[in-house]
């Protein structure tokens, strides 16, 4: 069972993705999911233990980068990642350069790459 220190937040407008992410990572980590950026911000307030945030890029109302920018303003000590069906684009590239996000993963995501990133981060 995952402890509170291993809490991950996954934001995606696709509920199947949320469900699968939870199923795959909840075995080792404490997984919280949100279907929008606004919801995610609420959840982050409720769960300050959230250490890593994975966000989809293309979402209605607020896309991944917009959400992360807002989240960063409040929770700059956390690590943010983008997982997108899109190829890397200028917006993501800029976010990477500015350090807004720690890394970018492409869907369908590779479990091993994701795990490596989480492990690397949590060890710090």
């Amino acid at each position: 069972m995952a402890d509170e220190n291993n809490t991950l937040l996954y934001v995606d407008d696709e509920s199947i993705n949320l469900m699968l992410f939870d199923k795959l990572f909840s075995k080792n980590y404490n997984v919280i999911t949100a279907e929008s950026g606004f919801k995610a911000l609420d959840l982050m307030q409720k769960h300050p233990e959230i250490k890593l945030i994975f966000s989809d890029m293309k979402m209605p109302e607020m896309n991944g980068i917009e959400f992360i920018k807002k989240a960063q303003q409040q929770y700059s000590d956390k690590c943010y990642y983008i997982i997108s069906g899109y190829e890397i684009n200028d917006e993501i590239d800029e976010a990477l350069t500015k350090g807004l996000i720690s890394d970018y993963f492409k869907k369908p995501f590779n479990m091993v790459e994701l795990n490596n990133a989480i492990q690397k981060n949590l060890e710090q």
Binding site: E14, I16, N17, L20, F21, K23, L24, K27, K58, S84, G85, Y86, E87, K106, K107, P108, F109, M111
Partner: peptide, 24 residues
């Protein structure tokens, strides 16, 4: 192709995620 890719990548993520879940 970017649009298509995105739309395909999500279902692929389902299949891929689903297959891992099944494996588990």
């Amino acid at each position: 192709s970017a649009g298509i890719a995105h739309e395909i990548n999500n279902p692929l993520n389902f299949i891929h995620g689903g297959s891992i879940a099944l494996e588990n």
